[in-house]
């Protein structure tokens, strides 16, 4: 039932990001270049979000929709929603993706992660779960942009994390899934998850420091 992304597939993509670093970097700037290529890696999802944000590109949105909408729906069903509710909610989430595309910060999250946070919040509203206040968002000002190397690094870390997650022993993986599907209370969650979150955390921390610096 669980397969983040098969390790083989992710491992194939990974060197391609590293190997084509300057090209990908340019593609992030000029999203259109990748138009004909099917988006497969984290960096390419970032390009598609950019195209939605900057040119309201319906083709880019269609690719995002086809990949993510069924996954959001599946996720919501596993979290206790019925089919009709999950369908409607997945559409809601994709509407939000379109509208908030410009607020996505690829130096701090993958597109999948960003969409997860939107889906989680929608699920809380939909299932009338406890209200969930959030800290103020920190966003780049109109003149500033995240560093492109930070963006690539972040997308690579997210890929690595998916691989690490898929390689966890079944027992731990299943605990984590149940926690995210809302089946466990905080006291039922194990303090030791076995997830190697140190490197991705450090990278986000660095991006936050740059952002704070640019805001000050």
């Amino acid at each position: 039932m669980f397969d983040v992304q098969s390790p083989d597939r992710a491992a194939r993509q990974y060197p391609s990001i590293v190997g084509n670093l300057p090209m990908v970097r340019e593609n992030i700037h000029r999203g259109k270049r990748l138009a004909s290529v099917k988006a497969e890696s984290g960096a390419e999802w970032v390009t598609l979000i950019r195209r939605v944000a900057e040119t309201q590109d319906t083709d880019a949105f269609t690719e995002l929709f086809e990949h993510f909408a069924p996954r959001i729906k599946g996720f919501l069903i596993k979290s206790g929603a019925d089919h009709a509710m999950a369908e409607e909610c997945a559409q809601d989430v994709m509407v939000t993706v379109w509208r908030k595309a410009a607020q996505f910060d690829p130096s701090r999250a993958s597109v999948a992660t960003w969409i997860f946070t939107i889906a989680r919040n929608r699920r809380i509203d939909m299932l009338r779960r406890d209200r969930r206040p959030e800290p103020e968002e920190l966003n780049w000002g109109p003149e500033e942009e995240p560093d492109q190397l930070d963006v690539l690094g972040m997308q690579q870390e997210a890929g690595q994390l998916a691989i690490a997650l898929s390689r966890l022993p079944e027992k731990q993986r299943s605990m984590i899934e149940r926690a995210y599907f809302g089946e466990l209370t905080h006291s039922e969650i194990a303090e030791e998850t076995g997830l190697p979150l140190g490197t991705i955390k450090s990278r986000i921390r660095l991006a936050l420091e740059r952002l704070r610096h640019s805001l000050s």
């Binding site: 997860f116 800290p135 997210a158």
Partner: peptide, 27 residues
Amino acid sequence: ECRARLASFDAVGGALLDQGPEGREPM
């Protein structure tokens, strides 16, 4: 520090969402 740690836990949620074909439910 905890803002970054939270973002890393959100990334776990992202990885769970972005699973292979068996995690999908056709629209």
